[in-house]
Design a protein around this nucleic acid. Sequence first.
DNA 1: CGCAACATGTAAGCGGTTACATGATTAC
DNA 2: GTAATCATGTAACCGCTTACATGTTGCG
Lengths: 181, 181
Amino acid sequence: MDVKTVCLGMLTEGDATGYDLKKYFESTFSHFFAAGYGSIYPALAALFGEGLVECTEISQRGKPNRKVYRITDAGTEHLREALSDPKPSHKLRSEFLATLCFAHMMSDEQVDAVLDNRLEEIARYEAMFDEYEKAGLCQWPPGKRFVCGFGQAIVNAAKTYIQENRDLVVPVDHDQKTAHG
Amino acid sequence: MDVKTVCLGMLTEGDATGYDLKKYFESTFSHFFAAGYGSIYPALAALFGEGLVECTEISQRGKPNRKVYRITDAGTEHLREALSDPKPSHKLRSEFLATLCFAHMMSDEQVDAVLDNRLEEIARYEAMFDEYEKAGLCQWPPGKRFVCGFGQAIVNAAKTYIQENRDLVVPVDHDQKTAHG
DNA sequence: CGCAACATGTAAGCGGTTACATGATTAC
DNA sequence: GTAATCATGTAACCGCTTACATGTTGCG
């Protein structure tokens, strides 16, 4: 499943512009599927060329025309076929884990920094998920709720693991641990 | 960090051929960093061209020469620099989660199949990690132990989450749940 | 005054995947 | 006999990233 298919799927939840879809990728999808404008706009153009989406242009002064896309019946059918893969992939690519595999080549300070930075990013994800819960998570389609819960579960497991096992790769600094308690 | 750098890091744990490194990618690294021959062999050739590895060719009858690579001092230095990035990436790309986001476009049977297949792959990972524990995990460098433990923690969290929340995306089949108890 | 948000797009380049090509040895 | 293992590599392709290009509106 490529960016094109994901865009098509996003359009099942309502008409949108490329700009809107980008925001979507940055929010709910950010923890498992990245895409930038350089992927999204060409994807929409291709979908349009294949008749899988329609486009309504809305003139605006000073800005490019707003192009609102809507999925067509052909698009819906195409999406259903794409979703029929019973073994969709789930791939991690982690420089973080690769780096730690080679921790024996690094100083303790470096390893510490890498772990702390990861914990910070995890905290950002947690904050993001909390935002979603405050907003209308309860009214979301069940698939989206499942996926966000999945993200929370994984992120939480990662956080706990790092906190409880960092002594494997770096000597524990007890001062740091009790500093701001 | 690209395949080249990871190959270089792997060579810090002992000399190896491209074939050996592929097995490495398929074992310890399989859960977070994929690479095929089409990446590995060109990577080694490039490293050799840059003087970051040496190569000893060993003649064999009927087979191509075995090319055993060894990291050089320049390679070690290069690796240390690559490892100095304090914010290494950690990216998930999941068609699995994308698919479930659009569960409202699928039949219950399809969603069930997707979840079951994921649980099966999770089981394969669990078996793999268990293998490592039986083998000499205790003698592994700490970085590798940390990374494998991380994999186990994440995989376990994913398994538990799917088992406890699949009712969000598909009606629970109670027969199935109690079938082989 | 400057920055963020709105809004669309192109083009070069890079890195990785997939398929192809070859072929002996060993274990079942 | 046939499949897996050992062993190396190339080349086309594909999709994504990054940088570039443009310009208004509104907020602080």
